[in-house]
Nucleic acid binder design. Structure first.
Lengths: 244, 244
DNA sequence: CGCGGGATTGACCATTCTCAAGATGTGTGG
DNA sequence: CCACACATCTTGAGAATGGTCAATCCCGCG
């Protein structure tokens, strides 16, 4: 019996807790029921029916809220290794929609399996709750960004945060990463207009800091970019206590 | 043995679940260790030491994050009946600070007491998790507001949301409510400058919609204000499933 | 070849910010 | 009781960040 350690979720959690063989096997077990969703077609889990959560295996998803006036605000992006609708199991979910940005593969996690896993290994439960708490910290950081950072810093910060998250699951490094988002996605996430996103991206590119183009993000001068964005990945690490 | 039903938390939870005598007593038990904090003096629970949560009994608190450049973003306000640092018990807390806006009274909740209460009455646990989930929904709504609403709608929406929350614990009605916030608080919460907050408040006042003055908020034309702000309290109610 | 989604760019506009000057009110020390 | 410091609120003038509208380009696809 071989235990895959290449699942993105496993990889992510392993960064923070050294998981035992049994725990790895349990995680693997949670990844049995794979499902596929098409880009652009909303996969809304709401209320009664949405008793299941998913772990994103490949592809990108965004969770967003639509305004009465037609504009939308993207609350968060999910990348491989992230949960979708975890809160609808643990707590009760808030009412936003999920839209796959590209075709995705996701493992359906049954509530009962998850709870059983929790009961069997408290360490795994801790690790998963850590992940949930990290998601929350990201939403808060997102709030701060929109409220108190100008467009340039906002976009720089966003690209760096994505990079950190992707690196954690092996989908990026200090050079850059693949990124299927359009400039419209950035605009909806960052509270800007697409036109202005375009202008700021050009500015960052011409300053030799970072390129966002043709599905790739390339860091040209990571140090200067980090300094410009005042990027401190502390809220993503959350290391400390959990390593015990 | 008398069971007080006037605790703000009890009042809040009762709106959504009919609590039994035993559950009411348990809630009462959670409110034994009262503590006081002074306005302006940060009560930061971070990491190791902060194993306790509080239930705010009276007064207002805000949770915020400081930026490297000195500006701050207020993430949320807590009013009587709200938890402070609940996530540091259930999950792991993110790293923002708490500051009492006025002198406050708060009941310290020990982790063990809370977990015991959860074990004894699943219904109470559900109710408390509902409250946590509602807090999260508010942060998301806050994010949407900053990202996609202009200053007038933003402020109108904020004042209405506060009104709804306060009404739930008996501290306000459709006429208005007492509110110790300064215009600087509004600015830091809504991602605006204090000067502009002032101008918008004047505008709302002169339009005969709402007055924010001398520690009071008065709704002059609630219907028109709700319409202007596109205010839909759905995300605050979360009724439905929980009433079963 | 024509169409549609995304990216670009310019010109102009407006919401919101910054700076600055007062006004008002409250608490403290003299 | 007065004077002063300090916090809060107000208002004006000018600047700026970011938005809207509109045209164009590029490219993959049926």
């Amino acid at each position: 019996m071989n235990i895959p350690v290449n699942l993105p979720l496993t990889r992510k959690l392993s960064t923070f807790v050294a998981l035992s063989k049994a725990e790895l096997a349990l995680l693997d077990h949670l990844h049995q029921r794979n499902r596929f969703f098409s880009a652009g077609r909303d996969m809304v889990h709401q209320g009664q029916s949405g008793q299941a959560a998913y772990v994103l295996m490949s592809g990108w998803v965004c969770s967003y809220k639509l305004q009465p006036d037609g504009t939308r605000q993207i609350v968060d992006f999910q990348i491989p290794g992230d949960f979708l609708g975890l809160r609808s199991v643990l707590l009760r979910t808030s009412d936003h929609s999920f839209e796959p940005i590209v075709d995705i593969e996701a493992a359906e996690v049954l509530t009962e399996d998850l709870l059983e896993a929790f009961a069997q290994t408290p360490r795994l439960a801790t690790a998963i709750l850590w992940a949930a708490s990290r998601d929350e910290a990201m939403v808060v950081e997102h709030l701060v960004g929109i409220g108190r950072r100008d467009a340039v810093v906002r976009i720089a910060h966003f690209l760096l945060e994505l990079g950190s998250r992707l690196a954690l699951v092996g989908l990026g490094d200090t050079k850059g990463y693949d990124c299927p988002l359009t400039q419209y996605h950035l605009a909806d996430a960052l509270g800007l207009s697409a036109v202005h996103v375009n202008r700021v991206l050009r500015q960052l590119r011409e300053a030799g800091l970072v390129t966002f183009r043709e599905g790739h993000v390339r860091f040209h001068d990571l140090d200067r970019l980090v300094k410009l964005a005042d990027f401190d990945p502390a809220y993503l690490d959350h290391a400390g206590p959990l390593l015990k």
